[in-house]
Design a binder for these strands. Sequence first.
DNA 1: GTCTATATTACGATAGAC
DNA 2: GTCTATCGTAATATAGAC
Lengths: 192, 192
Amino acid sequence: MARRDTYTPDTLLAVAVRVFNERGYDGTSMEHLSKAAGISKSSIYHHVRGKEELLRRAVSRALDGLFGILAEPGARDGRAIERLEYVTRRTAEVLMAELPYVTLLLRVHGNTDTERWALARRREFDQQVAELLKQAAAEGDLRADIDVRLATRLLFGMINSIVEWYRPERGSAEPEVAAAVVRMAFAGLRVT
Amino acid sequence: MARRDTYTPDTLLAVAVRVFNERGYDGTSMEHLSKAAGISKSSIYHHVRGKEELLRRAVSRALDGLFGILAEPGARDGRAIERLEYVTRRTAEVLMAELPYVTLLLRVHGNTDTERWALARRREFDQQVAELLKQAAAEGDLRADIDVRLATRLLFGMINSIVEWYRPERGSAEPEVAAAVVRMAFAGLRVT
DNA sequence: GTCTATATTACGATAGAC
DNA sequence: GTCTATCGTAATATAGAC
């Protein structure tokens, strides 16, 4: 509400993404956005072509962050299990750093072209991580009693659930959360 | 599409919940439901008062399933870590048994009274499980290097993620999936 | 860049016939 | 129990003034 200094597409996006996450993309009207941004509905169309462009910008930013991880040295060099731990930790970190954008990405349904594109790109990312699990299993570093496909899904389930509850504060707990994810995923809850 | 034998509220609900999960609740219009059910929009209003009643019926069914677990003997008797494992497995099982209903519950936003009620009830369930983790930690059965609050959230993240990918087939894999969740949550991915 | 006013379509829900 | 027709509202988006 009530930000009157002029907007850029990116500053408007920040407002829009927050509202999208609160109400859901489909549950958010241009009227809701206009109220939250403190400008009229029609002014929004000066900055972006429409509601779907806001969604496209948001999920693009999230996907860029995620694919960036796979290009980092820690994701490319070394034993598969070590690369997998690295990608797990970095995915958790990127998810928290780009929290609202990734949250929106993870909740996309596939009702529009933009949403279907986002889903397809997200599947690509997941498959590249699945490949890491497969290699780690082949190298004998994963428990043999859990299916690799299933493990991939549960791993992502745990990481992605961060968007459901993590809220940044001063004295940010991002490294601790990322470490806890890695620890629980690879060592489990129970004392050994 | 094209089911012409007359509906009951429950058979109509099954159709509606499927569409809600495909398109999102807010992304689903009464027109979408009418097409999927093979009857006209106005006929839907003969069976239910409106769209929100369908949502209420669906999330009620999901919540009944979840709270039922906490009343079972395995969730009430024995050491806390054993009860926690039991609840973890049973939650995964109920989630798969009532898949579309729980899926809808987990995606509710809070835009209407019905949605806010569902969110509040769900928080109650989560808090009862969190209590189990707290007890298990006090009894020394949980790793000391992960915060209990954080562990609760990651545990639910893993369990709840089942709705994102599990699809029932003939020769259902429900027991295997539930076992994998328990194994990964309590023992982790890495060989020990 | 922002506004008011408005075009146009889609939505949830109801009326009343069969 | 189902239908067609329609009401009233809210949605996305545009036109044109300032």
